Amino acid sequence: MNNGSLLATYFRARRELIQPEDVGITREPNRRVQGLRRQEVAALADISFDYYLRLEQGRHHQPSEQVLASLGRALMLDEDAMAYVHRLAHNAARPLLRPAPRAESLDENLIRLLEYWSHTPAIILDRNQDVIRANRMALALGSGHFNPGCNLVMALFDAEVRDTFPRWEESVSQALAALRYESDPFDPRLREIVDILSTREPEFARVWARHDARPIMSGTIRSGDTALGPIDLRFQNFSVPGHGGYALRTYFGEPGTDGAAALGQLALTVDRDVATESQPIPIAGWMPAP
C-alpha cells in the first residue's frame, strides 16, 4: 500500500459516513448507497467526477492544496482531519514520520523528570500508545497497564477496563482517532496492534473503519486498584520535542476529590517503599523493536 492508496481509503471512508441531509442534498426514495455518492462529493467540491474517481482509486497521489481544501469542505473535515489528509497527500515516500529513538537513547533529563514527580503518576508513550517509561507512582497505580511494553489502546479492551471505564465507547473513539493521527501507517507495530484487535474486538473494527484522526491532549481515566476503590483521574499529554512522536503523560486528581486523596495515599506508600529499599529500583524500561 502506498500513500495514494491510504488517501483513497480515507476519502472513501469519510464519504460513506456523511448523509445527504448533512450537506443539503434531498434523499430520494429507496436510496441505498451508503453515505454520499462519488458524483455528489465531486459536485460539492467543484471538481470533476473523473478526477475524484482517480483519487478514490489511488491513481492520483498529489492533489493540489486547492483540491484538498475543497474536498475537506465537501467531506466536513475539521482542522485535525485536514492536517492528517495533508500528511497523507504530501509525503510520497515512506516513512510518513521520522522513526522514534530507541528507549535507551531517551534524554537522561527526561527520565529523571519522571522520578522527580514523586507524587505524580507519569509515563512516556510512543506514537503507537506503547508505554516506554513509567515512574514509581504510575507503576503502583496502573494495575499493570502502565508497565513498560503495555499498550494503552489494547488495555482499553480488557474486560475489567471495559466494565469500569467512564464513557467507555467515547474513550475508545478518542483513543483510536489519536492512534491513527499520531502513528505511521507503515509501522509494523501499528499493523500488529490493528491486526490483533481487529480479529478479536468487533467494536475496534467498527470504530477503526471510520478513519477518525485527531490528537488527544487530555482526558479522564478510572482506576479501580486503590485504597478508596474506583477513582477518576485526569490526564494531560505533553509532546517531547526531538523524540520522534514520544509524549509525556501525567495523571492527577481534581482537588478535593477521591482521586486526589487516593494519589496522596499512594504517594505515602511509594515513599515508604523507597525508604526501605537498600538501593533505588531502576526505572523500568522497554526497548521497542527497531
Rank of each mutant, 00 (worst) to 15 (best):
I111S: 11
R112V: 09
L114R: 05
E115N: 13
S118Q: 14
S118N: 14
S118E: 15
H119E: 15
T120P: 06
T120R: 05
P121W: 01
A122T: 06
I123H: 03
I123R: 03
I124V: 15
I124K: 04
L125H: 03
D126S: 05
D126G: 05
R127D: 04
N128A: 07
D130L: 10
I132Y: 03
A134M: 05
N135T: 08
N135H: 07
N135C: 10
A138E: 01
A138H: 02
L139G: 12
A140V: 11
G142E: 05
H145D: 11
H145M: 14
C150A: 15
C150N: 11
N151E: 07
L152D: 02
M154G: 06
L156M: 13
F157G: 01
D158V: 05
E160Q: 12
E160K: 15
F165D: 02
F165Q: 10
V172W: 01
Q174E: 13
Q174C: 09
A175D: 01
A177T: 02
L179M: 07
E182I: 00
E182T: 02
E182Q: 11
S183Y: 02
D184G: 06
F186C: 08
D187H: 04
D187S: 09
R191T: 08
R191S: 13
L197C: 08
E201M: 12
E201I: 10
E203Q: 13
E203D: 11
F204L: 07
A205G: 05
R206F: 11
V207I: 15
W208M: 06
R210A: 10
H211M: 14
H211S: 12
A213W: 01
R214G: 01
G219E: 02
G219W: 02
T220M: 12
T220G: 00
I221H: 10
R222Q: 11
R222C: 14
R222I: 05
G224N: 15
G224A: 15
D225L: 13
D225E: 14
T226R: 12
A227M: 14
L228Q: 09
G229T: 06
P230R: 05
D232V: 10
R234E: 12
R234T: 06
F235R: 01
F235G: 05
F238S: 10
G245Q: 03
R249Y: 00
